[in-house]
């Protein structure tokens, strides 16, 4: 796990993304799929990155480790700062040394993310031997410790299992063990529980929380607002490639500052009571080549006004919050009752 010195200055961000712009080659030419994304991950905190399909949340997550499918997807501008290193500009070789060591990633499909030809111990051991130069014996012992850490029962036995012998939840635990093996500062988790059942999901998310005790910062990419509400500290909401709102989770949920956030919250079906009619957001996310010049949510927004036709910037709203809405000051949006 990270050295204790790392956890001390908890105000220094673990990772900062500034003005990130990513373009994609499509049949309509090269268009921006991520534009002007700013976000900050802090040590020991889980930041939720929320958005629907086409919002650019997954692409943003992949960009941190420069795992974009180039040349289809390309970082055009912006900085991804890990300490004073700019990951967006780091030479390939140095970046490779960082992946899995200081920044790690966990993906949605545990089964396809694990090489079926190797045992769990070999897979975890490979990370340790590569990055930390451990020998085979030491790597295996450490792998057993890690399996124990991620809550796999009988780790001495499980270390020799093949991925297909494990349930989906266990596979995701193994992936997390691989990701945190070298005690990274930052963990990017892209929909880590979407393929899992709810009961297993809750356990995996609790595991992620426990891993942040050591000062690791987590970026949790998900479309599930319930997951965000229950398991994140900070929230970043993306819409059509832009960040539209950020802030501490409870504050954003209680009083969203962007109509899109409010709309999403209202549309989530709750188990609490049956409503006559579910709130919806009319229409769909516009495709990247048909984005309006002004606010990108304008066509679906119930509060749209002429002022929304002008480009809007992400502005600081105090209290650690920011928003991208020209009418934010005059709107009183409904959140989720505390």
């Amino acid at each position: 796990m990270p050295d204790p010195a790392n956890t001390e200055p908890s105000n220094a961000p673990a990772l900062t993304i500034e003005g990130l712009r990513i373009s994609a080659a499509t049949e309509h030419g090269r268009v921006d799929v991520v534009d002007d994304v700013h976000l900050t991950l802090r040590p020991g905190r889980i930041t939720g990155l929320a958005g629907e399909s086409g919002s650019g949340k997954t692409v943003t997550g992949l960009a941190v480790l420069r795992l974009l499918a180039e040349p289809t997807l390309r970082v055009e501008s912006g900085r991804i700062l890990l300490g004073d290193l700019d990951l967006a500009r780091l030479p390939r070789g140095e970046l490779r040394a960082l992946r899995g060591r200081r920044v790690s990633m966990v993906f949605q499909e545990p089964m396809t993310s694990l090489d079926p030809a190797f045992t769990v111990g070999t897979l975890i051991g490979e990370v340790l031997r590569r990055h930390l130069g451990m020998d085979r014996r030491a790597a295996r012992e450490r792998a057993v410790e890690l399996l124990d850490r991620v809550g796999i029962p009988e780790p001495e036995k499980r270390v020799d299992s093949f991925p297909f012998q494990l349930s989906g939840g266990m596979q995701q635990r193994v992936l997390i063990a691989m990701a945190v093996a070298c005690g990274p500062d930052v963990l990017i988790a892209d929909e880590p529980t979407t393929a899992l059942d709810v009961t297993v999901q809750a356990q995996i998310l609790r595991l992620l929380r426990s891993l942040t005790d050591d000062g690791m910062a987590v970026l949790l990419v998900t479309h599930d607002l319930g997951v965000l509400a229950e398991h994140c500290d900070d929230l970043v909401v993306m819409y059509a490639g832009q960040v539209v709102e950020t802030g501490p989770v409870d504050d954003v949920l209680a009083a969203p500052a962007h109509p899109y956030t409010a709309g999403l919250l209202a549309a989530v079906p709750s188990t609490a009571r049956r409503v006559e009619r579910l709130a919806t957001i009319p229409g769909t996310v516009p495709p990247p080549h048909l984005l309006p010049a002004g606010c990108r949510f304008v066509a679906r927004c119930p509060h749209a006004a002429p002022v929304c036709e002008e480009p809007v910037t992400l502005e600081d709203a105090g209290g650690g919050r920011s928003r991208r809405c020209a009418r934010a000051a005059e709107l009183d949006l409904e959140g989720v009752g505390r």
């Binding site: 009319p282 229409g283 516009p286 495709p287 066509a299």
Partner: peptide, 12 residues
């Protein structure tokens, strides 16, 4: 284009 009905906007 997107107001009255629940229909989603044309993609093509």
């Amino acid at each position: 284009m997107t107001t009255a009905t629940a229909a989603e906007p044309e993609l093509v």
